[in-house]
Design a protein around this nucleic acid. Structure first.
Lengths: 350, 350
DNA sequence: AATATTTCTTAAACCGCTCTAGTGAAATAA
DNA sequence: TTATTTCACTAGAGCGGTTTAAGAAATATT
């Protein structure tokens, strides 16, 4: 008898009905009840009428199996885990949704957790795994190596989405960022741009993007102006705004003609910074984002961006996790980005 | 190495470190390990150095208690659950983040799941619950009544965030929507508006908001034009856009001077629809949103909106879940919304 | 009639962990 | 010296299921 105490009155919650309750009531053994309720009829080895009797009694008593017991018993839990870096970023939100859909379709349920700061990461990883997962998807990079290693050493299937470099043998799905930068720069050059800047922050993936942009520019023979490569000190939604403000302030009179923003959230807030300073996009300045979040086509002007194909990423990750045979055990699957041309980039006037 | 093969899912479940592993490795009894890892030092009845030895070994082996076993044993699992309606909505994303922060600070870990469509809801609730949670936060309304009842009857502490009406006895935290509408309308009236429209969709909370707006308008003596109350057929990011397009098309020549959007996501996309049709905001039309998502102050024009104070909502929900004494067992906590005046509302020209 | 086979049912171990009730041994008290 | 207390630890049951090996009863085979 489980007693639950509530502020005013002591309330006695009815004990949860167990298989044993059914067994006692029908005067049969617990194991028979178990098999009658779970096994398929022909495999059971129990008389039809007994099975029916048990099932009826289970229904009558409103019996529901304890998942804790099931999990403890080591049966696959039909549960996939997802760790997301930042729920405030719409890009991840979209990802979550896609993965959830896929999981549901395949009969899995999906549980997830976030991990804001670096140091909390390991704990967050394990906060999921202690529930007994069938697989784990990591989304948003920079997880602590030791946490990861520990996880993988348990034999859990882990797939990482969106990291550029392979991380000590973790199976990964990533977008070919170099190719994205190439697509983007080619487009800008075609429009006539040669003065290109970048606004990002200090996070791992954004610094990586910065480097990639620079190397690709160099490869294409474009000159790089160090002062046009901004790393905003802020993080989160304000980072893009701050970065662009900074660029406009220091670049007074000598702005680049186009700026690559670390991602669409950066770009959206940069649009605002431009607006506040009378910088017209795309007339005075072209802006390009990365991700193609749902809002990207709703901004004014609509955002030209390098789409990270969410569905493909998620589908790939999923197949790596639950896949059998062919899709299994690949080190890294690379997804091609796509350039989405909208309004925020145009021919430079200068 | 323990490898379990399952026919159903064809997944090899991970080997987990158990207390027994630690016990064997240190040549002590499992019960001692248990007590060393859970009990308070002075209650334990174990030598300090042994306790330390055990704790160190636990850390070294990356031990994490099995939530299933804890749940089965009737112990708190240190885990809170969160069910989110739509991860694509930035408002919820923000909420997740806040709750996660709070949970972490209090030593809980947070796991969550989404629930897109109505029929999947019960399963989703269950997918979280089955491992034994210490509390569950429901966020985003319209959960199936029977699913909820079943949940609550297990004795689990459940708090619902953001529902207007109390739902069969579920503890709830909600924003005073009527007050929000009042704030908003008062502001519009002060600016000189009398022709007010609404764009929402068919979802429960948005229909409620629609009704609330109408009754508040009536209460304030404003006339309601049925054709200015739009329910977009779409859902998701496009709904606001579609709805506004529709309003502009049918209202040709007789637009309201202000439109209340169901939420900020709706408003942002409506801004785009206006832009595409040469409707200037706020010159030709004032637009007001609800929520105050991070992007709301970044749009052009910046969004005037009724803020749902995320931190307060989350903090309230959290205190109801883990709270002791005073904050416990309240049926419904009501949070006051705040009007955030930005650029998207102005005096009407007409 | 005796044995073999099939059919129905049960006892018991196990999953990881908690917790009560011990068990020795050393330390203190009588 | 013996009785008592403290201390550090162990044994074992139980949470709610599943599962394997084995026992009893009914039916089939020789």
């Amino acid at each position: 008898m489980r007693l639950t105490y509530s502020a005013e009155h002591a309330i006695i919650t009815a004990m949860k009905v167990t298989q044993k309750d059914i067994a006692v009531r029908l005067n049969v053994s617990p194991s028979l009840v178990s098999r009658a309720l779970t096994g398929t009829a022909d495999v059971i080895g129990a008389s039809e009428k007994t099975v029916k009797r048990i099932q009826e009694e289970a229904g009558r008593l409103n019996y529901h199996p304890s998942a804790a017991a099931l999990a403890l018993r080591g049966r696959p839990t039909g549960t996939l885990g997802l760790v997301i870096k930042d729920f405030d970023d719409p890009f991840f939100g979209h990802m979550v949704r896609e993965l959830q859909r896929l999981a549901r379709e395949a009969g899995y349920s999906l549980i997830m957790t976030g991990c804001d700061s670096k140091d909390s990461t390991t704990m967050d990883l394990f906060s999921l795994t202690k529930f007994g997962l069938d697989g784990l998807v990591l989304c948003g990079s920079d997880f602590l190596p030791d946490g990861l290693d520990a996880l993988i050493s348990t034999g859990l299937r882990v797939v990482q989405i969106g990291v550029g470099k392979k991380h000590n043998g973790v199976t990964a799905v990533c977008v070919d960022q170099a190719r994205g930068m190439e697509l983007l720069l080619r487009h800008l050059v075609e429009l006539g741009h040669s003065q290109v800047g970048y606004v990002g922050d200090n996070s791992d993936p954004n610094r990586r993007r910065e480097n990639l942009l620079a190397t690709t520019m160099r490869k294409m023979g474009m000159t790089i102006r160090r002062e046009w490569f901004i790393r905003s000190g802020k993080t989160g939604p304000d980072a893009g705004y701050e970065g662009m403000m900074h660029l406009i302030k220091i670049g007074h009179g000598a702005l680049p003609t186009a700026v690559v923003m670390a991602d669409d959230a950066f770009a959206i807030t940069a649009l605002r910074a431009c607006h506040e300073n009378g910088v017209e996009v795309p007339a005075d300045l072209s802006i390009v984002g990365v991700d193609d979040i749902p809002f990207a086509r709703m901004t004014i002007p609509a955002l030209t961006t390098v789409r990270q194909p969410t569905e493909k990423l998620v589908r790939a990750a999923f197949s790596l996790i639950v896949g059998n045979g062919e899709t299994k055990n690949r080190d890294c699957m690379v997804i091609e980005p796509e350039l989405v041309v909208r309004e925020s980039c145009a021919k430079p006037v200068r």
